[in-house]
Design a protein around this nucleic acid. Structure first.
Lengths: 226, 226, 226, 226
DNA sequence: AATGAATGAGAGTTCATTCAT
DNA sequence: TATGAATGAACTCTCATTCAT
């Protein structure tokens, strides 16, 4: 358990190795031996430091959550105009997931596990993402300036922005099979990034004065949900 | 004991049980014993019918792909106006993933496996999704009728629509933790469905002579991709 | 069980296939499925015809024993001079094992099983090899003619002749590794055949009048047996 | 329970037990459980130490080869006269196979496997048997002294010597059935040992100016090889 | 005489975890 | 803090054999 103490870089190496292995194979698929070998430490040290496999997994999860929160907090959008600010938000989301594939895999796997571990972690539950607030502020500024449409729910917008970026990266392999194109190549990634940004802005950007997020839509087609 | 019950429907029962188990636990996490017990057949029959665990997994994957393709083909949008048609497309996507969670889990897991199995399957590689074509046609009709913006790439739109729906379902547990709300409840699902449809239509119907899908955007914010 | 009846060539095909498979993999290693597939019959027929795997194995064993006895009986040496007759005996032994590798493997395997099955078979126990008698007669003729040494035990000679030939074929693979030469190639086989014949004749052929089979030998070196 | 008893001699016990089990049942027939039980260790240690069953088999094979090579190197024949030396060589061969039945079974089995493992082992491929050289030297001394015939190939002689001894032991069970006598009893073994020595010496010492190892032999009977 | 489906027993192997030092 | 040896539980898969027809 003893989390602090000496710098003990074996702990660091362990976390790095575990992140890779858990991202690749999930909690269940990951091999304790593989992690130990990758970190070049004795397997038993894992138990010494983290109690058991699940403890290590939780540490990894908390670590990656902490990382993205730090990056998110580093975003300063107040000095940009609303449209640019929103574009940077989407761009950041895309870049983060495309550059941190382990994060994507880890989240994906955690959902397969029904977020059992994330829910258990105080650290994860308490550290709120600053993005929703950023989105909210930017939206307000845009509406005030008359460039964004009104009535958009910031939480739903957050999910949509994430979806536009995350889904592409998370499902990049089946998409590649489906469209017979390697979606990992630079051109494809750039293309997707541009589309995501344009999609969000195209939606938000107002020229008239549309009220709600779902305009001109017959009730019929909207409400046959499951 | 129970030797013959049904001549060959044990194959069917097996597939159903395997779909559930693989969706829940992935290829690696799934237990052959669990599948056998669920299907109420002798474990060894799996090997008789499908060769090995992976063979069964592949059969499940193909089955699930075949199913969604059938449902997609059943969509008849030609007699709806473009906006309604598009709304129905998004609605269908959302409903399918929210009602077929196994499909979502299976795809997710297959991406963790780098689509190794999907790529191997001729059936999956060859059966193209009719959705992209449907989107393309609907887009064209909408542009012609002057209600949709021009220049939208149907493949990117397909991915966006999927992302808006799939991401929510696939990550429903971590989203629930993040927003401290059970995203699986009916109200939340309905809300999300409405937002997704509104998002797509809001984007497409912002038609004030905008040419491309990424309007009025400073180069700077668009191109810092990874 | 039903051994006779219709010609039923599936029984023949079965025996042939089983001979190959048992020779290759032994009783334990042989696969009932493999035999069935090789014989192009339904696996269950094996049980119909032979009761079980062991029954089939026994049938194969009896079959190969019967075959070699037939070939042995076909040898007519009475009209050859003793030396030629003896040479033909050795030649026959070598040729038979080198051309009937399954026989060699089957015997080898049966010895690993401590001849459990051969001992059980009345047919095998009763059908005596005519070779010992042939050797005995030939020896007698040679001694009478003054060309063979006296006092040679025909049973030991039989074993020696067999050993000189059988050992080479049975251990051909490890010998190949040991001497870094493919002992299966024609030249190597011919060489061995010549040596074996020469060895036996060289031993038997008398110019003086040696009495026993172990001449001029210090007691010391002969009797430290285990 | 019994965690540590002996730090690393479990490897030794494992090898001994495995030798017995593999000799008795071959690579395929041997049971990992049986080996573990015999060695009184936990089954999984086998995988820890040797990777898998085949790894253990290979270790056994190498061990057994190493053993006979050591014994062979311990033979000092230079101070014996050629005939005694040769008799000791044959005697050694017989005694070794009759006292090391596992060696015989292991070799036999390895030949059934087409020497796949022996060929793979550098150790086995490289460690040459010193016997051939011993035979060569002894032959030369004997020829020089005028007691041995000329032109005998030492490799063929090696194989013949081995055949005379090894075949008897390897096939002792079917021979017992064939001759209705227990070939394992002391008298039988002694008899065979004597015969083998006498056979080799009888062949070598027939020195009446014969040139090659196959004297006075009609072409006809010699060359109908397969 | 012939077949496809089904089964129970057990094989080799993997793996997280713990012991002793 | 660090390590090599050891372990029990479980998992995938194999295989001879039998059932029902």
């Amino acid at each position: 358990m003893k989390k602090q103490g000496q710098p003990a870089d074996s702990r660091e190496r362990l976390l790095t190795a575990a992140t890779v292995e858990f991202a690749k194979n999930g909690l269940l698929g990951a091999r304790v031996d593989a992690i130990a070998k990758l970190a070049k430490i004795n397997k038993q040290l894992i138990y010494y430091h983290f109690g058991d496999k699940q403890g290590l997994y939780l540490a990894v999860l908390e670590h990656v959550y902490a990382d993205i929160r730090i990056k998110e907090r580093a975003l300063h959008l107040a000095d940009s105009d609303p449209e640019t600010a929103m574009a940077r938000l989407v761009g950041f989301s895309f870049d983060y997931v495309s550059q941190n594939r382990e994060f994507v895999r880890l989240l994906t796997n955690e959902n397969i596990l029904k977020a059992r571990n994330a829910r258990r972690s105080k650290l994860i539950r308490r550290t709120r993402s600053p993005l929703v607030q950023l989105i909210e502020e930017t939206l307000r500024r845009g509406v005030k300036a008359g460039v964004f449409r009104k009535g958009v729910d910031p939480v739903q917008l957050y999910i949509s922005m994430a979806g536009l970026c995350f889904f592409y990266i998370a499902n990049i392999h089946t998409l590649s099979v489906l469209f017979e194109r390697d979606m990992q190549e630079q051109a494809a990634l750039r293309e997707r990034r541009g589309h995501a940004i344009g999609f969000v802005l195209g939606f938000l950007t107002n020229t008239d004065a549309k009220a709600a997020s779902s305009p001109r839509l017959s009730r019929r087609s909207q409400c046959r949900s499951g």
